[in-house]
Design a protein around this nucleic acid. Sequence first.
RNA 1: GUGGGUAUAGCUCAGUUGGUUAGAGCGCCAGGUUGUGGCCCUGGAGGUCGCCGGUUCAAGUCCGGUUACUCACCCCA
Length: 425
Amino acid sequence: MTIARPRGTNDILPGESEQWQVLEEAIHRICQAYGYREIRTPIFEHTELFERGIGETTDIVSKEMYTFSDRGQRSLTLRPEGTAPVVRSFLEHKLYGQALPTKLYYVGPMFRYERPQAGRYRQFYQFGVEAFGSGDPALDVEIIAMPIQVYKELGLETFEVCINTIGCPDCRPAYREALRSHLADSKSQLCRSCQTKYDRSPMRILDCKEATCQELTKDAPLILDYLCSGCRDHFAEVKRYLELLEVDFVHDPRLVRGFDYYTKTVFEIKVESLGAQDAVGGGGRYDRLVEEMGGPPTAGVGYGVGMERVLLALQQQAGDALKPSGMDGFLAQFGGATKEQAVVLAHRLRALGLKVDLDYLDRSLKAQMKAANRSGARWVMIIGQEELENNQARIRWMYDGTEEAVDFDTAAQYLAAKGKEPITQ
RNA sequence: GUGGGUAUAGCUCAGUUGGUUAGAGCGCCAGGUUGUGGCCCUGGAGGUCGCCGGUUCAAGUCCGGUUACUCACCCCA
């Protein structure tokens, strides 16, 4: 073996790259339909940005970042998520000084040092959106509806939308205390990681998969009973708007999510058939993050979607929608002057926007026909000595094998017009 | 970071209790048609059996190590 790709990375080869293009097209189109505009931030940032933005205690920051020093001894990190860089850019360019809310989306690679498995890679692609400057629950719902529309338009129908609220810094402390006191006596029975969560972020114990932890939290107090009136009203409004939009959802009181910065609404969208890594998207509200990062108090809400996971789910659920379209035509020739004519006509056809190819290996007509068939060409233009003498190309329609003669001068225009007609067979 | 599974042709995989020139299907190339694709037939190219070491007269096969892939845990998209 020669040099292989780094662990957890993928080459996206022809055949699959077309699927990515379909997905990316839908993302751009739908984000723009909702009034979001694309932002492109650097692939790497100062390490400090993620330490402050995501939270030093999270797994991502404590053990999953690709961090390195550049030649100027700056500590830089390949971005592990999209929100912190967008917030940084929002502040750096003082976008809060313009008309609010600011609605942004991004598409691109993220990097986390983890053991790869199905649906999880070290370099993976996310698209996400962030909306700054409004605390309106209708905006939370817009944010939830957007990825759902992307899934549906691509043909992904089977997924589950889970929502929850995790309160705000005013009401959450009381709930955390209630949770701690509920678990105080049984703390020693919790799994190892949950024992450390007990002090640091007890709510994360709620989504532990250990059977004993689940059992111990079964009758734990619910945050709904501890919400301040603002958070309670907000959550009720979110649910009401979701119902108005006829978005099916389940309220999962155990959904808490990993980042420290979330407030109020959190949500996650799952596809069961994906295996252990079943979340195709997730997000929530983060009304304090912008201020914590040194900006003016600014509400925010956003989500991130794992594009590999969407494609995996799509490959399971939507088969044909992702098939790449083939070539329009192929020009077969016999070398010498016939090749010159083919090269000229191919050039003209391509200038007219048709997808055409020709042989560059001096192969037999039979081999050229085979290549044409394989490329998906609808027609083959055959240019031999006889055609040259008559100044006419022979056009063979591949779906039924019929042939016709067309003047070289008009062939390109003729095929360009024909190319727009639907294939009947 | 922890655990399980796997590693033979471009791809998907066979390969007997260790035994001579390691096979199939698909794909690729050529021919069957001195200028015609798909179906069919014939032929061909293509492999340091992941890597290193050990046992043995003999290792693709057994043993040890190692690397990669893969699934799961943790966590997340």
